Simulated scan of single mutants.
Amino acid sequence: MCPSRLNYCTKVVEHIGLEGYFDSQSKKYMEQIEDYLKLDPKRRDTSTSQLITTFSLSENGRTLSKRLRVQRIYLRDEYKKTNTKEDLVKNLAIASKFYNIWNLSNKNPDEIIINELKNDKVALTCLQVLAKKHIISIALLSRFYSKSLLEDSDAIDFRDVIKAVTAFFVLWGSARTGTAGIDNCYRELMSKGIKNPRINVEQEQNKIPPFCRQKNVDDINLEVLKKAFRYFLFEGATDKAKIYSKETWLSKIKNINIYTESKEVCKLMPISAFDGVVPSGQGIGLVEEARSGVSETLNKGFDYSFFQSIEHISPQRNNWSGVTDERKHALGNLTLLPISTNSSVGNQELKEKM
């Protein structure tokens, strides 16, 4: 069966011919796309629309409308004008395969179909965070995923790309209220590249080319991606909040009520902070480095039972001495607890919570 909303299979069959189509590689690619779309029949139209908009941004840097007619015309025209028609269908199939990975990371991580993520549970935790709140990153991630499948792309470690995207998402989202144009950073990187990617005025100015496949087949790598992310953190935000060092990031995050801005970012930060540390004997709330293999939290998964809920130490409803209403949602007043424990702790006295 051909993907109904794509209305794409007819063009492929017309080009190859009916007899040749049934034994063609293109038919196998179309079946891969169909396999993804039928996983959730109730969301088929939505899944198809998301897949095409992601593919468009990843393939040629185009931000595509979600309207059915626009998407059909886009696919028809792209297939008609390309000289490598089978590669175009293949790239769409790879995008659908990555969407499958993206969705399974939250629904059933044990069914993830690439061993690299099964063997790196920190990367899987990061992908789970992105899948909850950062859908704009799919085009970039699917582009790297596609390249990681090539035989000559040993330098691309897809797990490290996931971690870099997550780090960018957390650094950006934790230091400001609202999104401040983060989606535009991805669109700019995919479609136009960056004209002056610099962290400060002393550094040499260099252009980073677009990351979409049609404009940049080979020259994408993790180091260039990190350079682009550093540039965006420094001067890519619409709120002009420049983050170019740990100190500038700390100066901004200390004034942000992170709990009210982004639950996903808020939750991942203590998960990261607790990783590899144990309580210190120097005082309550202090930690020290743990022995290797002790207190590993980043590899437990984003929805691990101990991390199910975010708890306010000083309760939201009655202000305790030393914690003002303005700071009750700040990171220092938050911890992670299982839901059952959170319910029993509630608004108990401080000594009980401690």
Rank of each mutant, 00 (worst) to 15 (best):
T238W: 07
V70L: 01
N83F: 09
P338N: 07
F302G: 02
L75G: 06
L104N: 07
L268A: 11
D77N: 14
K66T: 14
D77F: 05
K28Y: 04
H312V: 06
T341I: 15
S191G: 14
F211R: 03
V129D: 01
S153Q: 15
S26Y: 07
I258Y: 08
G20M: 07
T166R: 08
V129R: 04
V122I: 15
C2Q: 06
F229P: 05
S56H: 04
A228Q: 04
K192C: 04
A93E: 11
N200I: 03
A95S: 13
K300I: 06
T63P: 00
Y145P: 01
I101K: 07
Y259I: 02
I162G: 04
E151P: 02
T48Q: 04
H312F: 12
D325V: 09
F168G: 09
G181M: 02
E223F: 11
I310M: 00
N60G: 06
N206Q: 10
D239V: 11
S148E: 05
Y8Q: 10
F274G: 03
V70F: 00
A131Y: 08
A241Y: 07
K132E: 12
N100S: 12
T238C: 04
L57E: 11
L337N: 07
K97V: 05
K38V: 15
I199M: 12
T297H: 15
T166F: 08
E288P: 00
G301S: 13
Y79H: 12
T125G: 10
L92I: 10
L298Q: 14
F302P: 00
F274C: 14
R69V: 01
K226N: 15
D183W: 09
E34D: 13
I94N: 08
E296D: 11
K267T: 09
L150M: 08
Y304L: 00
A93S: 15
S314D: 08
W320I: 14
L51S: 03
E247W: 02
G346N: 14
C266M: 10
S321P: 06
R43W: 00
R143Y: 10
Y79P: 00
L337D: 02
R176M: 13
V278Y: 06
I156D: 13
K97E: 09
T297A: 12
N318Y: 07
Y74W: 13
N196Y: 10
N196T: 07
I253K: 13
M190E: 11
L104M: 12
Y304C: 05
S191K: 14
I194E: 03
A131M: 06
R44E: 12
A164D: 12
T54N: 09
T10S: 05
K195M: 00
L233I: 03
I73K: 13
R213H: 15
Y74Q: 05
N257P: 00
D157Q: 12
V129P: 00
Y74T: 01
K121T: 14
F274Q: 04
G173K: 15
Q214H: 12
V224N: 08
S314N: 12
S191W: 04
I112V: 03
Q25M: 08
S24D: 05
R230V: 00
W249C: 00
K246M: 02
C212M: 08
N206L: 14
K242F: 10
I243A: 07
I194N: 07
